[in-house]
């Protein structure tokens, strides 16, 4: 049964890798946020798969639903930020935003 767990974790790791790659290389703010969404899909897949394999699917479902609620709240905040940034700069390019240096 735990073979299945690793199968699902394999796919969730792929999703998270894809998201992080995009986050590191892309420049469009909305693209960056799509990357965040992809990462969170990987995480919720991992949660549900863990619950299903370990016979605690009810608990896992509550966790996944809570996670989705958090995600919605985050998406709303981030999109509000993006729209505000666009209003200020008339652009979605992250390179134009590099007044601050790390």
């Amino acid at each position: 049964m735990s073979n299945l767990w690793f199968l699902y974790l394999f796919f969730s790791a792929l999703l998270i890798f894809t998201g992080i790659y995009c986050l590191l290389t892309m420049r469009n703010l909305i693209k960056l946020f799509i990357a965040v969404e992809v990462i969170s899909k990987g995480v919720s897949l991992a949660i549900i798969a863990t619950g299903a394999v370990k016979h605690s699917i009810l608990l896992a479902q509550t966790l996944a639903i809570t996670y989705i609620v958090v995600e919605v709240s985050l998406v709303a905040t981030a999109l509000a930020l993006i729209i505000n940034i666009y209003k200020k700069n008339k652009s979605l390019d992250i390179r134009l935003l590099s007044k601050l240096k790390g």
């Binding site: 799509i34 969404e37 798969a49 299903a52 699917i57 896992a60 995600e71 999109l79 666009y86």
Partner: peptide, 28 residues
């Protein structure tokens, strides 16, 4: 995977609501 409630939430909220929000932002 026997998680119908999470499935419903995923489809209605993430595939529905969040996509609408994204589309709105893209349009704006």
């Amino acid at each position: 995977l026997d998680a119908p409630y999470a499935g419903v939430f995923e489809i209605s909220v993430v595939a529905g609501l969040i996509t609408v929000l994204f589309a709105l932002t893209v349009a704006l």
